[in-house]
């Protein structure tokens, strides 16, 4: 089964990722890593996930105008755009890396993102 990697900040996902999985909310093939802020994610980490065998990567950060660290999710979204360009250069589908935004403490957008990316790589 395709592996999907998600990165969320502590503010967009305040529950343990495993709890979402045990409740059946996110697919088994999705692995979520929580970070203090998505703004610390580097393009290299997004790309390395693919090299390590992941099929798609997503990042969920705060709404752009409500980021806990002011510009963290904006920075993350720019890095996701950079990663998309690199995937294009490598003749890969740029849709395999995606940025999503969520209100603080709302798990639903994270669940939706995980399901969307899982569907995108299915089949």
């Amino acid at each position: 089964m395709n592996r999907i990697k998600g990165f969320c900040c502590n503010y967009t996902l305040s529950v343990e990722p495993d709890a979402l999985k045990s409740e059946g909310l996110i697919p088994e093939n999705v692995e979520i890593e929580r970070l203090p802020c998505t703004g610390r994610l580097e393009v290299s980490e997004l790309l390395d996930s693919f090299t390590q065998g992941v099929s798609a990567v997503f990042v969920v950060g705060c709404q752009l105008d409500k980021c806990h660290n002011l510009s963290g999710s904006r920075r993350a979204s720019k890095r996701v755009s950079q990663a998309k360009k690199i995937l294009e250069e490598l003749e890969m589908d740029p849709g395999l890396v995606e940025m999503f935004f969520a209100d603080r403490g709302e798990t639903e957008p994270v669940v939706q993102a995980a399901r969307l990316m899982s569907e995108r790589t299915a089949g």
Binding site: V43, Q82, I86
Partner: peptide, 17 residues
Amino acid sequence: DKEVSTLASALKLGLSR
């Protein structure tokens, strides 16, 4: 520094494919 690290990752990914 940052571009070095991005290029290293991009090359590794491109070559691995």
